[in-house]
Design a binder for these strands. Structure first.
Lengths: 187, 187
DNA sequence: GCACAAAACTAATATCATTAGTTTATAATA
DNA sequence: TATTATAAACTAATGATATTAGTTTTGTGC
């Protein structure tokens, strides 16, 4: 049923993810991807529906992987310990998979139902973790947005080289999360 | 000294900024820009040194404009009031100039001295605003990173359509800033 | 051993940035 | 006022890109 190479969608996406993590999300081209896979560019169309669709797949893949990492980090923990653990895991995920993470935040021009669903799972997990802070429902939603803003902002500024000063970044992350959580508890 | 059209670098950048704010940073091409200016693509090279250099100029322009907006919003205010005002101004700037803002956060492959300088001014302003919280120097640096993370994260998630729920976003921003500042004060 | 289908291929098109070389119009000057 | 120098436009050409159309090849199932 298959002609020459043992190539399928998963392997194509896998190779694309490697490119994206090593060279940046913007560096992903079908030409480079095809070269990496030792095929000609048009042959990629046997597996994907063009570059935008591939990027969409990577986005969903990245969001799902991020969710797994966060969920894993939250296991067996509650309250501050859970949020700190998840926050650190979040940032570490971005550090090891910068392109994959970036992909998840590109608003898809395409039908992005899968992407939104993947994002929703992350929101739900955050909401669950913040439940123990005794916030009313309205505030809990605000708090989730705050936590996401904090983590995404920190991770993407760091990734863009925006933390220029020679100053421990892990410490900054812990400090910021601690202060935010302290603020939530002081309501 | 000038041949046909009253075109100069400023007008080229201005037109590029319009494209970027209306269609997104990624939508900026020399072809579209040239069409907007009623010239042929290669003529742009009389004013700019290629697309990457133009993007770099836009980035610096955006960061400087953001700084102005923040500085203006801080005038005559201190403490929480100053930070809230600046934070809201920050997010509103991104809302009205999404592409321009995005440009400022693209790490320039080029010599980015100007870009870094523009970013540094924003950091210094934030540091000044946080001075009244009585933090030691070390914590003040962490706090600046936290504030930047919060604002950048909030603004860019919002811009990407990431706050899907039908829930007041300004309220979320105020809530988050208030909680973070409360946490800083509770040290 | 044969046929079918998936997956590779080549060829071609359109869009993009960029470079090289040419023309033109304005501004300074003679 | 006429001339010239130059900045800023132009055309032409190149190379990279994504994409489509149509062809060939190869492995699996019959």
């Amino acid at each position: 049923m298959s002609p020459r190479i043992g190539l399928d969608l998963d392997k194509v996406v896998e190779a694309a993810v490697e490119i994206v993590d090593n060279e940046g999300f913007g560096a992903l081209t079908l030409a480079i991807l095809a070269k990496k896979l030792n095929i000609r560019t048009p042959s990629l169309y046997n597996h994907i529906d063009g570059l935008p669709a591939l990027k969409q797949k990577i986005a969903v893949f990245g969001l799902e992987k991020l969710f797994s990492v966060m969920e894993e980090a939250s296991k067996g923990r509650t309250g501050d310990a859970a949020i700190m653990s998840v926050g650190i895991a979040y940032v570490n995920f971005v550090r090891s998979h910068p392109g994959l993470y970036e992909a998840g935040f590109k608003p898809a021009d395409l039908d992005s139902e899968e992407q939104m669903a993947a994002g929703a799972k992350i929101v739900e997990l955050s909401l669950k973790l913040l439940r123990s802070y005794g916030l009313n429902e309205r505030d809990a939603f605000h708090a989730v947005r705050g936590l996401r803003s904090l983590l995404h902002g920190f991770a993407s500024i760091e990734q863009g080289g925006g933390f220029a000063m020679d100053f421990d970044r892990d410490e900054s992350l812990r400090f910021t999360l601690e202060r935010y959580l302290a603020g939530l508890k002081s309501m």
